[in-house]
């Protein structure tokens, strides 16, 4: 007779999307690196034309923290700067960032678009962002065809179906909006959650 509702609710809220929000924080250095490198490159076209005015091929931008440790590496097969929109288009961006606490964040997509001050980064096509787990938790993975990231405000949004997974626990929805500063995560449209007991989340009650 003893279906234990306690187990049900215990599992339900042990999964905490908030862990995901820290992802957004890992990006702000990224664009600063990209922008700085790109501007030093030679100018090849008139400003304000739709044609890229400078390009980088097979580029890799790395950033180091004050202690000289590798902070993050961004690679891509090509990066074009578009003077008309003052944006940077990156083909096949690959990011790997390590936070001072040792949290590794990786991101990749078919295409990336970043504005000049790095306040907005958009990933298009098989966008995957993964953050290593902390405290024995499995990594947290966000997948979608479009991820809209605002690093300084620590926001990840998407108006397209997105899947968030940690271990065997999976949340999916048509649109998502994660905000690390506000500490909120909201999902709209056909929200589905599968929470597997024990597998991916520790019971945190005494």
């Amino acid at each position: 007779m003893h279906m234990n509702m306690r187990q049900l609710w215990l599992r339900l809220s042990a999964w905490s999307p908030i862990v995901l929000l820290a992802l957004a924080a890992a990006f702000s250095w990224w664009v600063a690196q990209v922008v700085m490198r790109a501007e030093q490159g030679p100018k090849i076209g008139p400003a304000h034309s739709a044609l890229p005015d400078y390009m980088l091929h097979e580029f890799s931008a790395a950033s180091y923290n004050a202690q000289g440790q590798l902070g993050a590496v961004l690679q891509g097969t090509q990066m074009d700067h578009r003077p008309d929109t003052d944006t940077f288009e990156i083909t096949a961006p690959q990011l790997r960032a390590v936070s001072p606490q040792g949290i590794v964040t990786t991101a990749s997509a078919q295409r990336g678009l970043a504005n000049k001050d790095g306040s907005n980064i958009q990933l298009f096509g098989h966008a995957v962002v993964e953050r290593s787990g902390t405290g024995g938790q499995p990594p947290l993975i966000v997948r979608g065809d479009f991820l809209n990231i605002f690093p300084q405000q620590q926001i990840i949004q998407s108006n397209q179906p997105t899947v968030v997974q940690q271990g065997q626990t999976v949340f999916s929805a048509n649109t998502v909006d994660f905000n690390a500063i506000a500490g909120t995560a909201s999902m709209q449209g056909r929200v589905k959650a599968v929470i597997v007991p024990g597998a991916s989340t520790q019971a945190n009650s005494p």
């Binding site: 003893h2 339900l12 909120t184 995560a185 999902m187 449209g189």
Partner: peptide, 20 residues
């Protein structure tokens, strides 16, 4: 039933909001 104990939980809804 007792066997429910370690079954996964499935939730479906129109929307979800989490507030840390």
């Amino acid at each position: 039933a007792q066997t429910d104990r370690n079954q996964p939980i499935h939730i479906e809804a129109d929307a979800m909001r989490y507030d840390d």
